[in-house]
Simulated assay, not measured.
Amino acid sequence: MYAAVAATPTPTLDTWLRELSTAANHSKISFSIAALLAVRPGAARRAAAAGVAAVAVASVSANLLGKQLARRPRPDRDAAQVPFVRHVPMPVSASFPSGHTASAFAFATAVGTCLPWTSVPLGLLAATVGYSRVHTGVHYPGDVAAGALLGMASAAAVTGLARPLLHPPG
């Protein structure tokens, strides 16, 4: 699957997906959306807090636990012939799971739990971030799938524990 993505010519998408992948570094996209939500009162502010908390849980789980336990090497972009125009800097951390994907799905799931109307656009954004990590040659599809599951589980943990705060009576 990785080689199929790498070998598929997509010149129209290459630059855009590389830029999206880079913009997702350090959850900058999620934190920007959270900042926009946080300036609104009520459910939007609670959604922003839940999203940021879920990103924190997912990031710790992926980067400090998952990558340390799995230690999967990164893909060989040269062997897979990933075009140079797609390249982002190759992270030095292990490949499994995808931290970018875990954080994006954690944010999308947590915010979507609080604000259901955001579920589809944020879910599509998270999926695109995950795909961009394979497209740029820094992750295998399995890394992204595991990251997505980890992100959703992180959001479920945060929203489950914080349910009384996220859904106050009245």
Rank of each mutant, 00 (worst) to 15 (best):
G51W: 00
P121T: 10
C114W: 00
V88K: 07
T128Q: 09
Q81Y: 00
G51K: 01
P11N: 02
A24Q: 13
A146R: 01
L36V: 13
V92L: 11
A156W: 13
R45Q: 15
A157F: 14
R46L: 14
K67S: 04
S95W: 03
P9F: 02
R46C: 04
L115W: 09
T109Q: 14
H87V: 02
Y131T: 09
A70L: 13
G160R: 04
S59K: 07
V57A: 12
A127H: 10
V39C: 10
Y140V: 02
A6H: 02
P121V: 07
T22M: 10
N25M: 10
R77V: 12
R74C: 11
R163S: 14
A38Y: 10
A157K: 00
G160A: 04
G123H: 11
P89M: 03
R71H: 12
A50L: 06
P41V: 09
S21I: 01
A94K: 06
S103D: 13
L165H: 11
F105S: 03
P9T: 08
V92D: 07
A153L: 15
G137C: 11
H135Q: 11
D143W: 05
V138F: 05
H135D: 09
A54H: 01
P11F: 05
W117Y: 10
T113D: 13
V158S: 01
V144Q: 03
A50Y: 03
L124N: 09
A80T: 05
M152P: 00
